[in-house]
Simulated assay, not measured.
Amino acid sequence: MRGQVLGVDRETGDGQISGDDGRRYVFRPRDWSDSIGPAVGALIDFEADGTAARRIYRLPGTVAMPVVAQPQLGGRNKYVAALLAFLFGVLGVHRFYLGRTGSGIVMLVLSLTVIGLVVTGLWALIDTIRYLVMPEEEFADRYGRRPR
């Protein structure tokens, strides 16, 4: 069946197609069969599977801008997390900041002993370095999008 892409969610890549039969069909990124991907307004050919579109191909000559999923940067900042890990890491403050309450409590309890202070100190130093070298998109995926 032929149709046209009506819209694509920038975050998930899910979208909707208007088929030549007048019905609307939904698709997921895995249903797209070409390397360019979905684009609003693109003329396409697809297989209808109930209300879903499968095996979607762009028709030659379609000039529409592809929709690129953009990472949603969260409210947490990797530099603030690194600073907290460096300054107060033995107490697990950076873990609480990032919503990792369980590991924050473990670090806090471990810091009550001398050996635990050494362990949490190394842990915090590794976290500091990891946050600083981690790409913004990966940090946002791990710590910014969804509460944990």
Rank of each mutant, 00 (worst) to 15 (best):
L87A: 11
T12K: 09
L112S: 13
G99C: 06
G7M: 10
V119F: 10
G3F: 03
Y79S: 06
L84Q: 04
G104D: 10
G3T: 13
V90Q: 09
P29S: 06
M134S: 02
S111G: 02
R145Y: 15
D49G: 03
V118S: 12
V67L: 13
A140E: 05
Y79K: 05
D21A: 09
F86H: 00
R23I: 03
G37A: 07
G144H: 06
G61M: 08
Y131C: 09
G104K: 10
V63G: 11
A82E: 07
F96S: 09
Q4W: 00
R130Q: 13
G50Q: 06
D9P: 01
L6N: 08
A53N: 04
I126N: 06
V26T: 13
A42N: 02
S103N: 08
G15I: 02
A52P: 02
D9K: 05
G144W: 07
R76K: 14
R145W: 11
S33D: 08
R28H: 15
L122C: 13
V67Y: 14
I129W: 12
L125C: 12
P38T: 05
A124L: 07
R10A: 15
Q70T: 10
V114T: 15
K78Y: 02
V63F: 12
I105P: 02
D14N: 13
S35Q: 15
F96K: 02
L43T: 08
R95V: 00
F139R: 07
T51N: 04
K78D: 02
D31P: 07
E47S: 15
R55Q: 13
V26N: 14
V5I: 11
Q16A: 15
T113F: 10
E47D: 14
V133P: 06
V114E: 13
G75S: 14
V119I: 14
G7D: 09
F139Q: 07
F27T: 08
G15S: 04
G61H: 09
A85S: 13
